[in-house]
Nucleic acid binder design. Structure first.
Lengths: 245, 245
DNA sequence: CGCGGGGTTGAAAGGCCTCAAAACGTGTGG
DNA sequence: CCACACGTTTTGAGGCCTTTCAACCCCGCG
């Protein structure tokens, strides 16, 4: 499980590290403006919520299973994927700290949530969460705004899946990951990729081989450098122009 | 508790013509359970809203332009598309009566809305619409539920774009269109397609030629029949199995 | 009647996938 | 400490599906 002691060096994935850890203890999310435990709702929420930790590769909930909870990602990265009968898979999102999952409020989950790193989630009873939203318009409004931007993001991803080449997809993906984790890591050249090539391929609508090939080609052109568990962006401008931002 | 089922089945024999027209006059949407003018909010809404009609091919709002309105589709079909600099296009949705557009509440529109048929839209001033939502939790809850299901739909479409073959895409599209308009037309064999092959291709991540070829192949196998401005589904079961629903 | 937009069809090219094998990294057990 | 196993990544060769480019057809309309 997560190591709370700040003096012990953490495993690499945990570099998300101390700042996040600190907040994790009180269930607050430091990453985005939406803090589920903020303001007047704090006491109530702590009442109906419960923190749960997941090991890498553990699944928080599965596509098709009865959905009775809303989840807030406190720390770590969560892979959201949908499966086709014949095994084809599509990753529909990669959740970062601060993201809310399961708000669709349908009878069953529409995707599976898998931990890419050790993950801390905050679980809310759905019925009581919904009640609370009803009683707290300001909170609902923020949740709603968050969700709306998620939809816009989904539409961007449709554009990527439907109309971009492999190279553009990979470039956009790397820049996207960098931007997504910037609140935690800063906008460094290094981009952590705690997922497999298969995961990336399933996210971009490509095969793992194509992802690998594309990355090595970018590396040969000195635009990125492939490093263990990630890449280093050597030429942001070129990468951006490839992604045709 | 949030409304779990935004798609309540509606009377079959409703016709775009009369029934819809009647409601259009008061800005009410007859198609889905979400009626923007329902309940106590009705008077207020009529105060801040205004109906606008668009001819086929007219654009209600454009990607990138300042967004200061929320729109409710009253009648007709609206194509939602995003453009890449080099002209590549992705259709991110086809809005039907009852759909809400522009709720993302971002500074600019993230897509363009074009009328596929003569269309009636109900325009709401955004700021005042937001205020109203704040004052009317029940309304916000319904809008929210609607939006959440839209996100689930977007994720389904990602799966289609990323992991399905041309034939599967077209089959799923036809069945999807049929289901989407069932509240108005009933679940008939005839599926109206008021958009061009190009539009369909941009929706499915294909070229217009591939869409055309795929349809003729399905027609040769007697699974569908291509008719002016639409198709007739001859074998729903086969089409469904191709779509691998 | 000619024009233009939309649809269909054909041939060729190309990008990505499939299948396969080898290289690499990491954790386990001798 | 090394050997080995296993999962992941890389690399290669060949093939297929979709795209590209082009021609032709159909139909409504000025």
């Amino acid at each position: 499980m997560l190591d709370m002691n700040p003096h012990v060096p953490l495993p690499r994935q945990m570099d998300l590290g101390d700042e996040l850890e600190r907040h994790a203890r009180c269930g607050r999310c430091p990453v985005r403006d939406f803090s589920i435990c903020a303001a007047q709702a704090e006491n109530e929420l702590s009442d109906i919520s419960r923190q749960i930790m997941f090991q890498t590769k553990a699944t928080a909930f599965e596509e098709g299973a009865r959905a009775d909870a809303v989840w807030n990602v406190v720390s770590g990265a969560v892979l959201l994927s949908k499966l086709l009968q014949d095994g084809r898979r599509q990753v529909v999102g990669i959740a970062a700290p601060g993201d809310l999952l399961g708000l669709a409020m349908q009878a069953t989950n529409s995707f599976t949530a898998t931990a890419l790193t050790p993950v801390t989630l905050c679980r809310f009873d759905r019925a009581r969460f919904a009640e609370l939203l009803d009683r707290t318009p300001r909170l609902m409004r923020r949740v709603f705004a968050r969700y709306a931007s998620e939809l816009a993001q989904a539409q961007d991803h449709m554009l990527l899946l439907g109309r971009r080449s492999a190279e553009e997809k990979v470039a956009a993906f790397l820049l996207g990951q960098r931007a997504r984790w910037a609140p935690l890591h800063g906008l460094s050249a290094r981009v952590d990729l705690p997922m497999t090539r298969q995961d990336i391929g399933d996210y971009l609508g490509l095969t793992l081989e194509t992802v690998s090939r594309t990355m090595t080609k970018l590396a040969q052109r000195k635009i990125i450098a492939v490093i263990p568990d990630g890449v280093r962006i050597l030429d942001v401008d070129k990468l951006s122009s490839i992604a045709c931002l």
